[in-house]
């Protein structure tokens, strides 16, 4: 039995954020090599994806947002056993409990699930945690016009320069250590949904500059004006739930990124007891638990040093 041929999105013909307009051939229908099978739109232009082989079309992504080079379907050889249809997988098994209201999954949520599933595929995720007592640092940063998120991004970006395995993309055959440090910051404000805009070159910036970048990205996120290059190509992700009363979390790997940091906070009865929690989920194919602990210790040390060296926190 041969591996099915992959049907990939390719933006050779244009840029922007691609989306599937429609499939031109029904799921599980026979197709010919070179036959137009799917209509894609990006930057208000449309183009067809053609079948890479003769065989039976199996749709993986029925519709909605996709990414460049993402696999949206397969061509199986005629007579080969076919996997469950995308619609069946999407619908899932019938629930045991009768009654209730079925809420269709949004395209945005479906895209989020695909990204997280890609992170799970083949990876060996593991999570390590550390804590740091920060006292009134959060308030001092805010009063100085900065933010905790900005300081953590700075500390992470500089630590990534030293611990390169965590600024990487893993694969089955090796690791790509990225030259650029591009930290994606998960934003989820009602009703805008989850987006992960990117702070670039944070290791070369000040906390105030990063806070300014975050402000602009937040504004663009809330006004839906983020550019494609501002949400594509993150090399590491930060998910900061500290302002939501979350003590700690176990984040999921994103796409092929080797690591993601979750930030939580425990506020003590005495403000001086306020404690940050850092949860680093990393791909064990790329680094060991010891290396992950060293990376987190480095991040923590940089934040501690900042607290000591800068009374205003900014």
């Amino acid at each position: 039995m041969s591996a099915p041929a992959e049907i990939r999105v390719s933006l050779d013909w244009g840029g922007g954020e691609p989306m599937i307009v429609r499939w031109l051939v029904a799921d599980r229908a026979p197709v010919k090599r070179g036959q137009a099978i799917c209509e894609i739109e990006a930057s208000k232009a449309t183009a067809d994806i053609v079948s890479p082989a003769d065989g039976i079309l199996v749709v993986v992504i029925p519709d909605g947002d996709v990414r460049d080079q993402e696999v949206v379907g397969h061509i199986h050889a005629v007579g080969e056993a076919l996997p469950l249809s995308a619609a069946a997988v999407e619908r899932g098994p019938e629930p045991d409990v009768e009654g209730g209201t079925h809420v269709p999954r949004s395209l945005r949520k479906a895209a989020e699930i695909r990204t997280l599933e890609e992170g799970r595929r083949g990876s060996l995720p593991s999570t390590v945690m550390q804590q740091l007592v920060v006292g009134d640092l959060v308030d001092r940063l805010r009063d100085g016009g900065a933010s905790l998120t900005a300081l953590v991004i700075l500390a992470v970006a500089r630590a990534l320069r030293k611990h390169r395995a965590f600024n990487a993309s893993a694969s089955d055959t090796g690791v790509l250590l990225h030259d650029a440090v591009r930290i994606g910051v998960a934003l989820d404000v009602e009703p805008h949904g989850l987006r992960v805009p990117i702070v670039t070159d944070a290791d070369t910036k000040t906390v105030a500059e990063i806070a300014g970048d975050l402000q602009i990205l937040l504004y663009k996120y809330m006004t839906k004006t983020l550019e494609p290059d501002e949400i594509r190509g993150a090399t590491f992700t930060l998910t900061d739930l500290s302002s939501f009363g979350v003590a700690w979390s176990v984040p999921l790997l994103v796409g092929r990124q080797a690591a993601i940091l979750g930030l939580g906070m425990i506020r003590g009865a005495d403000p001086r007891d306020t404690m940050l929690t850092f949860s680093l989920t990393f791909d064990h194919r790329v680094a060991s638990g010891r290396e992950a602990a060293l990376f987190l210790s480095d991040v923590r040390k940089r934040i501690s040093e900042h607290m000591v060296s800068n009374d205003s926190g900014a």
């Binding site: 805010r142 009063d143 402000q215 937040l218 504004y219 006004t223």
Partner: peptide, 18 residues
């Protein structure tokens, strides 16, 4: 300024602008 209003953080700043 932001230090006078407890909830005036970066998100509130952007909401104000918009």
């Amino acid at each position: 300024s932001a230090r006078d209003v407890p909830d005036w953080d970066s998100l509130a700043q952007v909401k104000l602008v918009i």
